[in-house]
Design a protein around this nucleic acid. Structure first.
Lengths: 293, 293
DNA sequence: TCGAATCAATAGGTATGTCCTATGGAGCTT
DNA sequence: AAGCTCCATAGGACATACCTATTGATTCGA
């Protein structure tokens, strides 16, 4: 019997539903199912009756539920008290992330963090780079997830990782299998551009122009997901970051590296210079440095 | 924060000593140290002052200790109640093992089992095969760890694994590096025999005689460890099971397979035919089947 | 009554984390 | 000063909790 199993169990009872319970616990539904099953096996009897649409406690389940509540509240209580005692409070963390990075980094980081500090309050803010920077300066946000280069502001940064920008083409497109693909090839194709409101859009444009390649922009979109759909349906090709390629579930796009002189973007954590950081913030930064990629 | 961490912590406080606490928890001292350190890190402050010879609680530690006791007793309590409810009692398990297998299998199995069922009572009995069988028949033991073949008695068995009997020679001995080693080679060397009181000794003798090889027995011993020491100091060579070879810490023996027709022994779990098995016994058997090797 | 939708369980693979052994280094004891 | 005792660190093995993808069962709506 483990504490996380008790948490899962209580969540299922409260939500009367495995799927919602899993969301509440920040794990996948199968993971939660597995742990409940394991708990039942260990205790030698079912805790829940699965009645199709809803879920009901068995006698054993009722017994466990009461104790589990008590155990969890004791554990949570002592964590709060200890946090109090060390003078750190329970912890609040406000993270900002630019829109073209947020969906690919935040889920994992927040999940990890939520598990380590179940009582910390996490506030997420997705926005354009400049707004994030503004809020960092105003102290509304503790840290931001941004891309280099950053405008000149008193920010401290730590690098997360550098990723390549890959050429996204429709599956089966001739560029998908061509041996060498250069910016000259790119210039000949219709191009779907991330809106240069986003720093990613600016970076892509800058990269092209530096190489005297003026892409034939047939369409611009402000969301990566939309770009992927457009590329997938043959509207044009585009340049997208690796993390977006990994997360692509459309199955209609192929991704490949350019043959030389590959474009990249570097993601960093940034915070206002000299800002005091509570323990949870420091821990979040440390954790992100190690596990962002 | 995890339950096992709380158990370790409480054990350290009770024993005032990491090493003893580790023994009580059936884990190694470094494992326990690690978990305590991890717990302190997560809570953001030390729980114990290490004062060389003894260990003292910090304020935070005192706070946690009280709560931990409460949490653990609640958890243990509910496990007992649930066991009660399913009508299985808390569980008692009496395991017998023949002397030439016990030290190599029991520690791991008992450790695993002790973790899964911290409240089950485990009784160990090491003895010669026949005594184990007698006690199984009399119902004093729930299961026995024995080797095939078994005398004709109403026993049910399940196979654990088959292991080779390896030739044990002093390090640097010419047989250690000879390409092919046969029973003819063995017959030429002085031989240290496990006392045929043990079924292992009988098996070794039988194996030799079946191949018309009469070993020159210079010495017989009733303990594998002693045999290893004797072989290591050059008294003679011997045939020993793989598990004993793996556990050999003398560093003075070399082990190798015979070139053909290799001798083996097969270890099994055995219990009296038709004997009712409580849940802990069934679980022990299942666990042993999977993790004995 | 059939098709769609919802939901839990299963399968397969990855990675995190706990455990082990071996070793180091600090503080007592003799 | 040498030897003990004891906790921490290092490195590698194994177990297990996690994920995605998929199946199978049930319920709901048409």
């Amino acid at each position: 019997m483990e504490l996380h199993q008790l948490r899962y169990f209580v969540a299922v009872v409260d939500e009367e539903n495995f799927t919602r319970a899993a969301e509440r616990c920040l794990v996948s539904q199968p993971s939660l199912s597995q742990q409940i099953i394991k708990l039942e096996k260990e205790l030698g009897q079912p805790l829940l009756e699965r009645l199709g649409r809803r879920v009901q406690l068995t006698d054993a389940g009722r017994l466990l539920y009461d104790k589990a509540l008590r155990v969890l509240s004791t554990v949570d209580g002592v964590q709060d008290e200890l946090a109090e005692l060390s003078g750190e409070g329970r912890g609040r963390l406000a993270v900002g992330a630019m829109l073209t990075a947020a969906p690919y980094l935040l889920p994992k980081l927040v999940r990890r963090f939520g598990r380590r500090f179940p009582h910390a309050e996490i506030i997420l803010h997705e926005d354009l780079t400049e707004q994030i920077v503004d809020r960092l300066m105003q102290g509304e946000l503790d840290v931001g997830i941004l891309a280099l280069p950053l405008e000149q502001r008193p920010l401290e940064t730590t690098e997360l990782f550098t990723e390549e920008l890959l050429l996204a083409v429709p599956k089966g497109h001739r560029l998908a299998s061509k041996k060498r693909v250069t910016m000259a090839d790119v210039a000949r194709e219709p191009f779907v551009l991330i809106d240069p409101l986003h720093c990613l859009g600016q970076q892509v444009l800058a990269f092209c122009l530096e190489r005297d390649c003026r892409p034939r922009v047939v369409c611009r979109s402000s969301q990566i997901l939309t770009v992927q759909q457009l590329v997938g349906s043959g509207v044009g090709i585009s340049l997208l970051p690796e993390c977006a390629a990994r997360a692509d579930r459309t199955r209609k796009c192929a991704y490949r590296s350019l043959s030389a002189d590959r474009p990249t973007r570097t993601l960093v954590l940034a915070w206002r210079e000299g800002r005091h950081q509570s323990r949870v913030v420091r821990e979040f930064i440390r954790d992100a440095e190690q596990h962002a990629k």
